[in-house]
Computed example of a mutant assay.
Amino acid sequence: MLDPDPHSHGHVPVHSHGPASPHPAQAAPWSILRMAVLARLGAALMVSAGLWAVVWLAMR
């Protein structure tokens, strides 16, 4: 890939901005905070069961 600016010497441009102009919020495709309480509990139980399965297989 050719460098469009021959005087840049391959340096990546610095991305900076002041605290008065922060990045705009990005839409999250998935968030645990938007899940219902029962869905969060179910997800936590599934993760816990998966971790216990790993422990069980490791001890076997």
Rank of each mutant, 00 (worst) to 15 (best):
V12P: 00
H17Y: 12
S16H: 01
A39H: 14
G10C: 07
H11Y: 04
P22Y: 06
D5K: 13
P6Q: 06
P4D: 04
H23P: 00
A44Q: 02
M1F: 05
H15P: 06
A43T: 06
L51I: 11
A36M: 12
A27H: 14
R40K: 08
W52G: 07
Q26Y: 04
S8Q: 06
M1T: 04
G10P: 08
V14S: 12
P4F: 01
M59P: 00
S8N: 04
A25E: 00
S8G: 00
W52I: 11
P4V: 03
S8D: 06
M46F: 14
M1K: 04
L33F: 02
A28H: 12
W52Y: 09
H15N: 11
P22E: 09
M59V: 12
L33E: 10
L2D: 03
L2R: 02
R60D: 08
A20N: 13
L41R: 11
A44R: 00
V55F: 15
S8V: 00
P24R: 11
S21L: 06
V37T: 03
L41M: 08
G10Y: 09
L45N: 01
R34I: 07
H11K: 04
M46R: 15
L33K: 00
P22Q: 06
D5Q: 09
L38D: 14
L2I: 01
R34P: 01
W56T: 07
P19G: 07
G50I: 08
V14R: 12
L41T: 09
L41W: 04
R60L: 12
S48V: 03
L2P: 03
S16V: 08
H7E: 15
